[in-house]
Design a protein around this nucleic acid. Structure first.
Lengths: 340, 340
DNA sequence: GTCAACAATGAAAGCGTTGACATCGCGAGA
DNA sequence: TCTCGCGATGTCAACGCTTTCATTGTTGAC
């Protein structure tokens, strides 16, 4: 059986409380005693029970992370930021995959709170009013990443300015001589991001005096196959509504689109330019390397954790709750060509 | 404040013990009482504290997962299998990223055991004798995935037959008319996989009467850039030691190799064929689609969890501990060409 | 009619920590 | 010399659950 705090206490000739203090508030214990306790812990290879600590202190040094799907390509990047920041604060991360289901997401909140997490990071799915009841009775801080909330409960979110980002994409494309720009937008029933990016696209067109045309827009659910199929639909009417460039709502869809283009004998970027969105690691590994907009996943993850930790120590004032927009960056690579 | 088991008990007019039983052994409580308790739980939106339960019952319905790096591309696939199986058994997963550091891996074991996990899945890194002390004093079952152990402590592992897999690659290449086959092998200080795959390569050559040649082998640490650089070195001496095909130890390196080939004016597969290893999701997204060997990540994850859960309920007999080899599969796509 | 067996429940003792409070010396100020 | 203050430590009651053991009624066999 594992050594408990009392075993250590006995071995060091002190009380359990002192051992506990040696662990958590070493400044409160006599250096000499501290040394003895430390040695005892060492010898018995004592490992405090995080569970017991969690119960007693009503905190678990654990953060909960709810993601819609582990296999979403952006997950790794976001997680890296979260993990890094958590570690710096001595916290662990409990992962919960909602599998793109709203019910499972709800469940995620209660399960995680059952684990006494100090905070919950919710990712990617739009938070709507039906989350309110759960959110309301939750007694841990929640922060959103890569998404936002339209629920009543005030929630803070870390994300990029989606509209602006897509506007920038259009601006970039225009600067490279493109005027006929198609879009493969994102659409998911519980996702707002797609609409926002589409809005940015429309704003971009408008700004440069290009007429918007429904036939140049197709939708997909962010994955490779969606990109492929959307491009196929676009291609079917390319003679009626021609385009020289396509911007997409995700790198993965961009890959699908490129694949489709290749399959139909088009070269990227020679015949048609393609832009990604996200700047996942793969973006630089494929041929042609993807020109895309980089989301600051790492920073978003880190900021989310920091906010949560701050919120756990002192409840944030209403003014601190809200949307924090982090800067995106357009990464120029090879999938877009200049046409003059 | 959250409702506790006692609150529910009071509301339902029973004792806490009965509520606990209603939760864990419903067969032991009168159907009528059960109903009352259930309603009370519902009304108070009671969520049992996993922490308290863990402390009391000395189990936490949590599995620990130690991975060398979140951003390793195979992680998502493996995790999917683990998560799926865990969920079926009502378990959560606590993730620990050892960041490719042996010390952090050690730490991972004790931290996770501090969380009273019911089992630990250790991934990808070779387990050597220096793990023995930690392993020995750990009181939870451990299972290895995508790696194996050379430590004294008997450990079970789920993986593929690496040697055989690479042998199959060579056999496939030979069947497509290739005789001059280079290899970009994997090398990491705490990894055995690389050697095993190299061995399979050599065995394959031998079997088909092809002379092995050191100059046709380069090493990399499995990532994209490693593949790129290794290929560059191979290319430097291609006139002395020509090759028509390259097999690699990871899809990511294959991608890097292809990129390098492209950058030097070679076409894949027209000029040179490239084989990947792993069959990650990206393998089918790139152009050319990667011919590769598929590791059964999902199954490996699932089997590992099942084994752990079995081990937690009853200690496995020595005969059940050992290496379980799951079948790999060669996936034919477009990166290898037949030469006649 | 008696008693054993059994199903349904309650009482209470932990599980391994923490944290509020009490205690004990000891040196300093009066 | 007495007391106050303070640093160092101990005591003990939680924390929210599970689990053992004891206590009820009931039921059925003799």
């Amino acid at each position: 059986m594992r050594a408990t705090i009392r075993d250590v206490a006995k071995a060091a000739g002190v009380s359990a409380a002192t051992v506990s203090r040696a662990l958590n508030r070493p400044d409160l214990v006599d250096p000499e005693t501290l040394e003895r306790v430390r040695k005892a812990m060492e010898e018995m290879s004592y490992q405090p029970s995080a569970i017991a600590r969690g119960l007693s202190a009503r905190r678990s040094d654990t953060l909960g992370l709810i993601v819609p799907g582990i296999t979403d390509f952006f997950f790794n990047e976001l997680y890296k930021g979260i993990d890094r920041a958590s570690q710096q604060h001595g916290m662990k991360v409990l992962l919960y995959d909602s599998e793109h289901s709203r019910e499972r997401a709800f469940e995620g909140f209660s399960i995680l709170s059952g684990y006494q997490v100090s905070g919950i990071i919710f990712t990617s799915k739009l938070v709507t009013e039906d989350y309110d009841p759960i959110l309301q009775r939750l007694n841990v801080p929640v922060v959103l990443t890569l998404t936002q909330s339209v629920a009543k409960t005030p929630l803070t979110a870390f994300r990029i300015d989606e509209v602006r980002a897509m506007f920038d994409v259009v601006a970039y494309l225009v600067s490279r001589g493109h005027r006929q720009i198609a879009m493969i937008a994102g659409k998911l029933w519980d996702d707002r991001t797609g609409e926002l990016r589409l809005e940015g696209y429309r704003e971009g067109l408008r700004h440069f005096g290009i007429e918007y045309c429904d036939a140049r827009v197709e939708f997909g659910q962010y994955r490779f196959d969606d990109g492929y199929q959307a491009m196929q639909r676009l291609l079917e009417r390319i003679h009626d509504v021609p385009f020289t460039a396509v911007c997409t709502a995700s790198d993965e869809m961009a890959l699908g689109a490129i694949r489709c283009l290749n399959d139909h004998g088009y070269r990227v970027p020679d015949d048609i330019s393609v832009m990604g969105f996200d700047d996942l690691p793969i973006a630089r590994m494929v041929t042609p390397r993807l020109t895309t907009v980089a989301q600051p996943f790492l920073e978003i993850g880190e900021e989310a954790v920091k906010w949560l930790i701050r919120a756990a120590s002192q409840p944030p004032s209403p003014s601190e709750i809200g949307d924090y927009l982090l800067p995106h960056r357009l990464v120029e690579r090879e999938s877009v060509r200049s046409i003059c």
